[in-house]
Structure formats: C-alpha cells, structure tokens
Design a protein around this nucleic acid. Structure first.
Length: 645
RNA sequence: GCCAAUGUGGCUCAGGGGUAGAGCAAUUCACUCGUAAUGAAUAGGCCGUGGGUUCGAUUCCCACCAUUGGCUCCA
C-alpha cells in the first residue's frame, strides 16, 4: 500500500498500520507529538488503521485539528475523573473549544473549589495511568440499551436524535466509556499539562427551557511550559479589561443607586465619546447622510406597528401598564427604525428621492436581563451611530457596499480593522415565532444579501438564528479580552418593515413600490466601541482620541507663569492640555501623567524658559525632545488631524 | 432570568461572634526639586442594604441590591 505523506513522499507498507505506527516509523518524536491523522482530508484517530492507498498528514498540536483532537481527549479525561469521584453524575457533552475544552455534567453535588482540586488530582492520575483509548461501534438499539444501563439519560437522548443511518461510535478508556464521534489520541498519557479554569452553569442543549447543568471549563497542552505561557497570556489580557482599566482611568463608573447596566461616563469617557461622535457625524455628512433627531419614546401603537410589541416587549422599558388598553402607554425606544421611518413618511416619495440616507446619534434603551450586563459592552442605555437608508432595488448593492466601506473606514481609523470578523446572520426556519415575514420573503432577503456578500468577497461565517426579527444581518464581530465575541457593527437588509409601515415611492411608471431599507451602524455603539478601544490600547489612546493630550509641567514654581502661557496657547489651538503646577517633584508628576496615559508631557525648567522652548516627553517611548512651542503645536496638530494610531 | 463566586475607608487588599487594619490616594506642614514614587503628621469606614439567630453580628442564616465569569439573550 502506498501512503502519500504531507511532503509529497510516498511510504510503502506491506500490512495495515495505525496512524500511530506510521508516525512512529517516521520518527519517535513525531509519534509523541502526533495528535491524529488527516487521511484523504478526513481527521482520524491515532488508532485508525490504514489498509489502503491514501494521503496522510500527521496532525500535531500545532494544527488546529490536532489541537481539537488533543483537547477533546482531555475532556474525556475530565469526565472520567468526575465519574470516578462521583459515579452518580450524568454526562452531557464535552467538546473542544477555541482555547481549551469543557464538559457539561448533571450533578447533585455543586462543583466547589475544593472539589475542582480533587478532580484535577484525579485527572493527573488518569494521565499517569496512560490509559489506551479504544473505539467501538454499536447498532442503534444496543447503543441506547448500553447507555440506559449506564444510567446516562442525556446520552440516550443524543443517540435518539442521531439520524437513522449514522454510525454510533463509542470511546473506551479503562473504566470509562463515552458516546463520541471522535477522533481521539491513542492514550491519556499525552495530556501532560491541563488546568480547570472555570465552573459555570449551562443549559442542556443551550435552551433555557431545559435543566441547567454544571459546565467545567479547562484547557490542556502537551507540556507544562505551554500551559504556563497560555495562563500568563490570559492574565496579561485581563489587565487590559476595559471594565477594570476604564474604572481605574476614570473613564466610567457605575453606582448601585442608579442601577445595573447604566454606567456614568466620567469627563474622560465623555470626551472620548464626544470626539468619536463628532468624527462620525462629520464623516457621515460627507458621505451624503442626513442627520435626524427623533424622540426617545413613543406610544405603544408605534411598536405594535413595527412588530416590537409582539417580538420585543420584554426588552423594552414601558411607561405605564402595557396591557391596559384603555390608557395611553409609552415605551422608551429599543431601536431607531420606526422613528426614522416616520421621517421618510413625512411626504410622498419618488424614485428620484432615492437613495435617501438618514443617520442619527441615537440613544436606545433595552431592558436586558440582569445577568447580561457587562461593563460598557452590554448596557441598558446606549448610544449608537444609527442609520437607515431607503433605496431602489438596483441601488441596493452599491448602497450596501457604501455602508460597508464606511464601517471599514471607521474600523481602520480606530485601528480595530485587523481584529474583526464577519458573520452573515440568518434566520432560523425551525424557530419561526421569533421572526416576522414569510419563508419566501426570508429566502429572498437572504439570497440578496448572500449575492452581495459573495460579490464583495466578504469572508463571512454563517450564524443561523442570529438574524434580527425583521431581516438578515452582516455583523462585524470582535472579541474582548476574555475571548468573548460581540457584535461591534451591523448592516441589515430589511423589506418587511417598509411594507408594515407603508413606506412607498412612486416609480418611473407611476406605480407605488416599497423601497429596500438598509439598517446600519457606522462605528457601532459608542459605549461598546469605547470599551473595545480601551482594551485595544490598554487605555493609552491614540493622541486624537486621548481625553487629555498634553500635560504641561513646570519643574519648579519659578516656571509656572511660563508654563501657564504654554498651556493657554495649546488650549487656544483646541489641544486638550492640562497644567500640573502642583508643588511636587517632577519625577512624581511625570509618573502620574505616565500612569494616566497622557500622550505628551511638556516640561519647562530654567533652561527651556530662557530659550523659549519646551522639553517634550513622549509617553510611549519615554524620549525627550527639546523644541519650541510652535514646533510642538505643529507636530501634535499633524498627529491629531491625521488621526495617527 | 439561570449557575457560581464576590461585596471591608476614593482605590488595592488583610482580618474575623465581643464592635476594624495596611499600602496607595486625600488633607496639612516642611523640602524649590531636571523626566516613573521626598519626608512627617492628620483625617477618613454603622465592614453593600434589609431582616433573622444571638447577651452581642461586620463575621452565622435568609432575602434583596450590585460586581465578576459563564449559560440563555443581544448592539
């Protein structure tokens, strides 16, 4: 038999061999590093037997698939340890994820910190025992019987839901057997380094209607050094957490008596948002957007018309009794759409009016569940760079492209462009009650969006069930320091609401038609975007965004008047300068300015004062340059105007 | 909303059934100083809130509020 290896060489074997044996025949080191095989493009077990001609790549921990196999096996080690300690625990599922793996358990016992230590110790034993993993298959009936006997109801449910013709495979390692599609390592002995990172609740099958299980998150590596480095990276990342840094740097705060999800933007945070907002509104104006300002609340009837009342009532702050139809009832707006549509409806529209682009810096209110709030990323009141664009069918692609270009321009200006990914968010036809419109309308809207995205060559992932209730979305996603992904920017195509609101235009032939509507944001929600920026720059914002751009520091009070004059000049030029002439040592005040992440410190002592110059210290490099005030103003103005990162 | 952890002066944290401590910050005084911490003194807390147990609760129990990480939901 001929095995074509990754480097193109062909290995000839006489009798069937496992992937492990092939790896071993190449080198012992490779067999130790190997996590699985890629046979004719399919990921297989280390114990997979090769008995015919094929191509083979040995997967190691450096390959994404290899890592998945490795960590998936680690999840079985975790499950085995839990079952050894607590035989009554019921097993749910245990997949590998981005940076590790988890396993869900239904346990009477709560997994406390003490228990987690015990589980880790048991896992160590299992690794030390170097237990071999064996794969076997069972016919459906026997598989169900097998798991019923082992008292694993969740596994029985999983088997029942498998398609009729699917192969039902199990993996056995010593006293532990799990229903599993695999593939896996050949031995538990390879899981040299692991750590349980967290215990959390998680609903069975991800539905809040089901029982909440206990999920143990962990990670695993082939050696201890890699694990230590990984944990170190996580610790480092947490230091950038906007929720910590943002409070330390006095960008925002929260206070019990105001309420959850209602942050106070302190002067620094407010300044950053103001800077962003001016930039956004100016840029949008350049691109033909017309600013509206619509009310923050409306009567119940508006939301009934838009569908929010039926689909989003729980998410709204309602003023009055929502169910008492005899009295007027208002609700704060959770979205801008129905309000801006009223601007369109102000008069009869012609095809000549289109495209019509409305933008608004729009404050929204959403009554999120109490467990959802997170710093500035998820709040109950937020302000979004909102926009709705009404256009003709033949304008849709070009206008969508324009919206996307605007969003990308914003991301590039902020320096976040490299950090985002795209998600094409579609409806879930199995969950129809969440959406308005017919299957045909959804197919059409999604078809149009797919065509546009493919045409623009946007590299997206599909998110089923992630659509808005009225239409599909292109979401621009970003991860926070904890690795959790959130939507930063969204672009949506909507036909349904235009119809509901009776939005029309008169076409060339005199007939009335509904326009296409693009819902979009250009920079996202200011609070969330600010949060991501804090994390991106660890609080050290580019000069154009920094709430304080320059701190002016006399060495001693003898230069105070000179420095006050410098401060005045900078302020006159619109540069955000502060004067720190406190009676403290210069080193002390420099240190403070550094920690507060002020981009420039300008220092003046006798020498500078006599020469009419300044010593300019750059926060980032710590270097000092002596220059005149005008030279400094030119330099920093250039940096601010070009929005240098 | 669900699972879990946490809540002690502005911040970071220690303590613990007999009524509270450190460092930083603040204030005052002295030092007039050259690019990441000068020294000393002073002040500041009903230990998240409300109940309960107890002779006595900040400590134990319950509820609520808030914070954190997940789940579900979502920009």
């Amino acid at each position: 038999m001929n095995i074509t290896l990754k480097d193109g060489s062909v290995k000839v074997i006489d009798s069937p061999m496992t992937v492990f044996e092939v790896a071993l025949s190449i080198s012992e080191g490779l067999s130790r590093a190997a996590c699985g095989g890629l046979v004719d493009g399919e990921v297989v077990d280390m114990t997979y037997v090769i008995d015919k001609d094929c191509s083979l790549s040995i997967l190691t921990f450096n390959d994404e698939e290899g890592r998945k196999v490795f960590r998936h096996t680690a999840s079985h080690v975790l499950a085995q340890a839990v079952k050894r300690l607590y035989p009554d625990v019921k097993l749910a599922i245990g997949p590998a994820i981005d940076d590790g793996f988890y396993y869900d358990f239904d346990s009477e016992v709560t997994f406390t910190a003490d228990i987690i230590v015990k589980i880790e110790e048991e896992m160590k034993k299992i690794v030390k025992e170097k237990i071999a993993l064996e794969r076997f298959e069972l016919p459906r009936n026997e598989a169900i019987k097998f798991m019923e006997e082992r008292n694993e109801p969740y596994k029985v449910e999983l088997i029942n839901d498998l398609p009729e013709d699917s192969i039902i495979s199990f993996y056995k390692q010593g006293d532990f057997v799990d229903l599993c599609a695999g593939p896996h390592l050949e031995s538990t002995g390879k899981i040299k380094a692991f750590k349980i990172t967290q215990v959390a609740g998680a609903y069975w099958r991800g539905s809040e209607k089901n029982k909440m299980l206990q999920r143990i998150y962990a990670t695993a590596f082939p050696d201890k050094k890699m694990l230590a480095e990984h944990l170190e990276r996580i610790e480092e990342a947490k230091k950038r957490d906007h929720n910590k840094l943002g409070r330390e740097l006095e960008i925002f705060t929260t206070v019990d008596v105001i309420g959850q999800g209602l942050p106070i933007l302190l002067p620094k945070g407010a300044k950053i948002i103001q800077t962003l907002q001016r930039f956004v509104e100016d840029e949008e104006a350049k691109r033909g957007w017309l600013l509206t300002k619509t009310p923050y609340m409306a009567k119940r009837e508006l939301y009934k018309l838009s569908g929010h009342w039926d689909h989003y009532l729980d998410g709204m702050f309602v003023l009055g009794d929502p169910h008492d139809e005899t009295k007027e009832c208002f609700a704060l707006r959770p979205m801008t759409c129905p309000f801006q549509y009223q601007a369109y409806l102000n008069r009869a529209r012609s095809y000549r009016d289109l495209p019509l682009r409305y933008n608004e810096t729009s404050t929204l209110f959403r009554n999120e569940d109490s467990g959802e709030m997170h710093g500035l990323i998820r709040v109950r009141q937020f302000t979004i760079s909102e926009g709705h664009l009404m256009c003709l069918p033949e304008q849709l692609e070009e206008e969508f492209k324009g919206c996307l270009e605007l969003a990308i321009y914003m991301l590039k200006t902020l320096g976040l462009y490299e950090d985002v990914s795209y998600r094409f968010s579609q409806w879930d036809p199995d969950n129809r009650e969440k959406y308005i419109g017919t299957t045909e309308q959804w197919d059409e809207a999604q078809g149009i969006m797919k065509k546009i995205l493919d045409h623009l060559e946007i590299p997206y992932k599909v998110g089923v069930g992630e659509a808005a209730f009225y239409g599909p979305k292109l979401d621009i996603q970003i991860k926070n320091v904890h690795g959790k992904e959130d939507t930063l920017i969204t672009l949506q195509i909507d036909q349904l609401l235009a119809e509901k609101f009776g939005m029309e235009y008169t076409d060339r032939d005199g007939t009335k038609k509904n326009p296409y509507i693009i819902h979009r944001t250009s920079i996202g929600c200011y609070e969330r975007t600010l949060a991501l920026l804090i994390e991106k720059y660890a609080g050290a914002f580019p000069t154009w965004l920094a709430p304080e751009q320059v701190r002016v520091l006399p060495i001693i009070d003898k230069q105070a008047d000179y420095c006050a004059e410098v401060y005045r000049k900078l302020r006159d030029k619109g540069i955000r300068a502060e004067l720190d002439d406190r009676n403290e040592k210069i080193g002390y005040r420099i240190r403070e300015a550094q920690l507060e992440k002020v981009p420039y410190m300008v220092v003046a002592g006798d020498k500078e004062m006599e020469e009419g110059k300044l010593s300019v210290r750059c926060r980032k490099t710590g270097e000092n340059t002596v220059m005149t005030i005008d030279e400094f103003i030119d330099m920093i103005t250039e940096e601010i105007d070009t929005k240098k990162l």
